[in-house]
Structures are given as C-alpha cells and as structure tokens.
Design a protein around this nucleic acid. Structure first.
Lengths: 192, 192
DNA sequence: TCTCGATGGTACCGATCAGTTCCGTCTTGT
DNA sequence: ACAAGACGGAACTGATCGGTACCATCGAGA
C-alpha cells in the first residue's frame, strides 16, 4: 500500500513555495525537507509544474474552508457579515510566516496568464468572490455582484499592502473602507 | 568616452524584468537583447542584483513623473483630483504589455523583506502615498494621511485584480470605491 | 597618426536546475 | 514464507545559472 510520500511531498512543497517562492525552490529542497526520494517524486508527479498546480488546489480548498469557518464564527450582523473577511485577514497578517496571498504570488511569479497555475489561482479568487456575493445577497444588498468584486479588490489590496508594510494594519484600513462601502450601498435607493 | 552601453543594459533589463519576471530573466537574455558584451555588463554592475535595484530606481522616477503629469492634466475638481490616480490606472491596464506593478511584483518575487530591491519597492509606494496625501491636504480633507493610505490600498488592489482579470475594469471599480470614500470623508464632521 | 579607454565576443568556471535511471530495502497482503 | 509494489538513495544527463578572464576592435583626444 502507498505510504504518505505524496502527502509529505505536497506539504513540504506548499510550505516552501509560499515562504520562498515557486521559482526559488528547487526539487532538491522539496526532496530533502520531505524526506522523499527523487524517484518517488517523479512517480507521483510528471513535473514540478504539476506539483505547483496540486499545491494550489489544496491551498484553495483549505483557504476557503478557513474563510467559511471565520464567517460561521463571526458575531457580526448579516449586513456586516462580509466584513468577516477583513477580520480574518487581520489574523492572517499577524502570523509570523505571512507572505501574502499564495495565489496572487503565483500569478505574479508565473508571468504567463495561460499557464495552468495562473488559471487555478484566478479561479480561486472567483470562488472567494462567489462567497462574498452569497453573503451580500443573503443580507439583501442590491447590486451585490459588483459590490462583492469591490470587497474582493479591497481584500487583495490589503494583502499586498500588508506584505509591503509588514504589519496587520492594512486589514483594519481595508475593513474601514469596506464598512463605508456597505453603508453607502445599504442606504442607496432602489434603481430602475 | 563612454557610449550608451549602460543605458541599453538598463533599458533591456527593465523591459525583460517587467515582462517575464526578475528570476526568469538571465544575464544572457539581457546581454543578447541589449547587444552589450558580457564583460561590459560586469564593468557597470557588480552583480545582477545591482541591476535590479537600479532598474527599480529608474522606474520609480518615471512612474511618479507620469503620475504627476496625469494629475496636472486632470480636469477633475480639487476634491476629486485624487481620483486621477484611478483614471491613470485605467489607461495603464489597457496597455497590451501590462503585467501589474513592477514594485509589487518585485516584493512578491523577492521573498526577503530585507533585500535592497524590496526596500526600493516599498519606498516607491510610500512616495506615491505622499503624493496622494498632498492632494488630499490641498483639497482640505481631514484625516488626509489615513485616507491617502486607503486610496493607495485601493490602487494596489486594482492592479492585482487587473492582472488576474486581464481587463481594465478593475480601475473603474476601484475608482468607484474611492469616490464613495472621498464623499464620505468630505461630509464627515470635524472630530475632537 | 598614435594611444588609451570603452566596448563586444568568446571560452570558461563551479553551482544548480529539472528530469531519468538503476538498485537495494522495507512494507503489506496473501 | 513469499511476491509485489512502494519506497529512499545515489549516480547521471544536458541545460542554464551568475560570474570571471582574456582578447580583438573601435573611436575619440592628443
């Protein structure tokens, strides 16, 4: 039976890719840190690129599950529930190993927008937007879809700002903007 | 007398780094595309890292000069003049070669926040924030400094969103948020 | 015309890259 | 007890990395 070689491989790759970047991490590093043999690596993955894609898929699932949990645990009212995203980001930014969003980083590092990794990263963001859109719809916001995209844009802006500043402050700043945005949307009269 | 070898080197490096990423571009590529000899390269720069820093410094100057021009040419009222940033971004996002912000990309690619390149990139953003702060101050906004940082955060969010979506739409979306933000700030009563 | 500094071209260095191959070992189901 | 498959280790490939050393050439100032 298969042992946990593939799992260790993906775990080490995910950590190293996030901490140091995809291009910066060679196969050798992944092998030594996971304790997996070179041959076993290529038994499980055709190439390094496939590991990248697989890592991103895993991270997408983990990240959205985490976000769902933060939303479920939030004490905010339905109208303010989308702000739970920024509450969550504030936590993430405080982590010592925080180095931005793995998906943004991947899209930046992988210049080619047609690459599989870029696609997986872009799809992740769309799924997050869908979550925000659902929250906004349930809270009765009009024009919820563009509003969801604006909130997501704010979240991404907070992430890259936090990377630059090295402090969690950007989450609060973006959250304040989001709050203004939600209140302005709430008091907006019905159109058409 | 010195010819223009150094200038050609920097020009080619700037273009290649932006289009394909810093790590993805080897010295060889820069040499062949600039037509500069290998020895001449190392006569002008101690290492590749120094070229990266020099390219970022140049780009910082060019970018801020461009922004100043867009602000000067803007027909917006003083209260809305900070929105000229988003007008300008909309133009940039439409360019075929657009691949995000070179400074964000550098910070993402260069994982080490203590590296010289990371510092130059971070300083660039602070300078842009200073420009926004000046516009807000001149327009009479209270709490202009945090407001400037919120607008910059929106700008960065628009940039990474535009990279992901491949369309200039994000600039409009972020501009709309900025407009809401400015109006909310303008009608805010004096504190203390 | 001569000279000197800047230049472009090339061969080379050790290190590392992704990927292939072979082999000995260890585990697991029968 | 045995066979099959998953495994780790290591040697090896060709390509590319950043960086060094050497050499022939060109162009401007004396």
């Amino acid at each position: 039976m298969a042992t946990n070689a593939k799992e260790r491989l993906l775990g080490a790759a995910e950590r190293l890719f996030y901490e140091e970047g995809i291009r910066a991490v060679g196969i050798e590093r992944i092998l030594s840190e996971s304790g997996v043999g070179r041959a076993s690596f290529y038994r499980h993955f055709p190439s390094k690129d496939d590991v990248v894609v697989e890592v991103l898929r895993r991270r997408d699932g983990m990240w959205r599950a985490w976000l769902d949990g933060r939303i479920a645990a939030s004490e905010r009212s339905p109208e303010e529930l989308p702000l739970a995203l920024f509450d969550g980001l504030a936590e993430r930014f405080s982590a010592a190993e925080f180095r931005g969003c793995a998906f943004i980083n991947t899209m930046v590092e992988t210049a080619d927008p047609d690459s599989p990794a870029h696609h997986v990263a872009a799809e992740h963001k769309e799924k997050v937007i869908a979550v925000l859109d659902r929250l906004l719809t349930e809270a009765g916001y009009r024009d919820h879809e563009p509003l969801a995209r604006q909130l997501a844009l704010l979240g991404d802006g907070a992430i890259v700002t936090a990377v630059r500043e090295g402090t969690p402050e950007a989450a609060v700043r973006a959250g304040a903007v989001a709050e203004v945005l939600l209140r302005a949307a709430a008091r907006e009269p019905v159109r058409t």
